[in-house]
Amino acid sequence: MRKVKVLTIKYGTKLSKNWTVTVQFCKMEGHIAADLYGEALQQSSIQSCPTSAADYALNDAQDNGSDDWCNEDGDSCEWESERIRNQFVTVGYREGLMAGQEASAQDGFNIGFKQSVSAGYNLGIVRGVTGALNCLPDDLKERLAETAQKRNKLKQLHKSVHSLSTSDALKLFHKEQTRTSSVHKENPKPDCTQISDEGVLENYYKELQSIIKDTPAIEACLDMMKQ
């Protein structure tokens, strides 16, 4: 029997609409619990405790199909009650795990969303400004960005971001995020060697800002971009 677990996270409250995000976990019911709970075990801080329910779940799975109780001398009854205990603990664990995931998934979604939305927004601004400018006729381009040097810089920036797909940008973002969080953990006090090391995505935005800074025709629209 195949049991499919579905975690639903809402983006906006219209469930049937486009923005509903569904996370699916497909696992075989009755499959080895080590597989089912392996990840949870790794994350669990109590994994070293031999009496934890997850360990029962594991033991239970390993014992499935084993016939060593026949070989034991006399305490098969005790073993049997232990086995039944494990079964109930396992079922409880599994259902508790799903209920817990269901209860916290939306929370986690909102947290993640807020962590990444402004990084995406800034990249989007670079895409929009350089892209829209690129499509204007030359005479307008010249009136907006007066010097050839500026126009060249904006063109280069457009090339750079245009060759970067959203999924690649997301990978960069993930890398930068894990790096900054590990830097924070290792060096609670900012280290002078790390400060200059900015993220690639952030640099695109900063470069755009520096080009536009003294370009009055475009600069006016930058204030409005701050959200």
Partner: peptide, 20 residues
């Protein structure tokens, strides 16, 4: 354990959606 893993799974989806 579900609270912990569900929050992390949700966060990962949120990171992607938020960025996009």
């Amino acid at each position: 354990n579900g609270l912990v893993s569900g929050k992390e799974e949700g966060r990962q989806v949120g990171l992607k959606t938020g960025f996009e």
